[in-house]
Design a binder for these strands. Structure first.
Lengths: 219, 219
DNA sequence: ATATGTCTGTTGAAATTTCAACAAAAGGAG
DNA sequence: CTCCTTTTGTTGAAATTTCAACAGACATAT
């Protein structure tokens, strides 16, 4: 497990947990590591939520498919980020989304039951972990508020611009690369791909943005 | 404070806290009660997030206004529910939404700083409260997933039907009253009010639903 | 270099949503 | 009951989105 410490230290779940305690803690939480190939399903929709995932390497996406066959991307998962914690903490018996590897991934799974119930070894870190989880869940809530800011825009153009301005702010640069291709961006913004391409074309012609593939600049 | 105990007991923040400890706890958390008239602003957008609110009586709504003058309703707040906890836990210095009283309200405010930092009185309930908060934040996350299920639908009609089917499921009855008027429902579903009315008319004519004001039935 | 598969931009037609304006219905105050 | 305000339904025109289909660009493997 030692080789993953650099990543784990950056995971907010382990904030304020010292390295020397991490090994014991991982044992206590029954941590396991598993690898997935590109497009593999890490969590399937409808499965019970028993584990929290931590992305050790690679990237994944949180995907929702509705009965109309509409795909929407809820969020991306980058290295050192955790996922599934909301479903695990709420002890859902069927998670409403799928987590799909975007590229080859290594994922650490943590037994949520162990985490929620103070352990018999009197492991003293649970309280800190619960606190960290709470913080993370609060931050995820804010992410959803941001997402609402995007999807509540009525036009493709406003959705796109809201998203791009957020990315620019996040990167503190007017030029940045986004983690989506066109279809994925459309699925994230909840719009039609061809309409999105058209809108990008219009905004480029007007000199408001420039764009090549997934690299954008706001002019 | 005693007179609010019936409500507070139903608030998930105080799960597993015994009545006899509640008084001490409320003191420790610097709880204050305040009343608001209809349409009054309980939390204003842009304010720092220092308090968690608990709705003792009345109802309110979480509202987002974008720069286009578009209003969208994020959620409703009913009696015994808490609000603002995500902003408070994430220690935001500007909350991105407004909380507006929907009818005359009484609200209990809890100092979040007191809650997050273990108190000098060695109050033993903080751990339980943090745990309760974590649970609540996880549940709120799930609410957002549900909301995405609605707003990710592309047509007014699918948004409406997704919402109505959810409500029916939640009420375990095909006939139910929703907490929104037409304009509010439109702002919640992120659609045009007149288009929504039209769509309700069509679905009624087709015999799929029946509706009078804010009472709906799925046939 | 070629072949193959994926991604992106473009187009036009059909369907839908938005917008503005008004009429009808409901609710509250006096 | 009547007046007044708010809410809801309706309509048609304008704008936008969706859909399907295709062509060009790009990436990868052989």
């Amino acid at each position: 497990m030692k080789k993953y410490f650099d990543v784990l230290r950056r995971c907010s779940l382990f904030n304020h947990i010292e390295d020397e305690n991490l090994i014991a803690l991982l044992g206590c939480l029954d941590a396991k590591v598993e690898a997935f190939g590109k497009k593999y399903t890490i969590f399937a929709e409808g499965n019970p939520a028993k584990h929290i995932g931590i992305m050790l390497s690679g990237k994944a996406q949180v995907i929702r498919n509705d009965y109309n066959g509409n795909r929407s991307i809820v969020s991306g998962i980058e290295q050192a980020e955790m996922f599934g914690e909301a479903f695990a903490c709420a002890e859902l018996d069927a998670i409403p989304v799928a987590i799909i590897a975007n590229e080859p991934c290594e994922v650490m799974f943590i037994n949520c039951h162990r985490l929620m119930n103070s352990c018999t070894n009197a492991c003293s870190f649970h309280q800190q972990i619960i606190f960290n989880l709470m913080k993370e869940l609060a931050i995820k809530n804010l992410m959803f508020h941001q997402r609402i800011e995007i999807t509540s825009q009525r036009s493709t153009r406003d959705k796109l611009m809201t998203y791009l301005l957020m990315q620019a702010k996040k990167n503190r640069k007017s030029s940045f690369t986004i983690p989506f291709n066109r279809q994925e961006l459309a699925d994230y913004l909840e719009v039609d791909r061809s309409g999105l391409s058209t809108e990008i074309g219009k905004l480029t012609k007007k000199g408001i943005i420039s764009c090549s593939r997934n690299h954008f600049e706001i002019l």
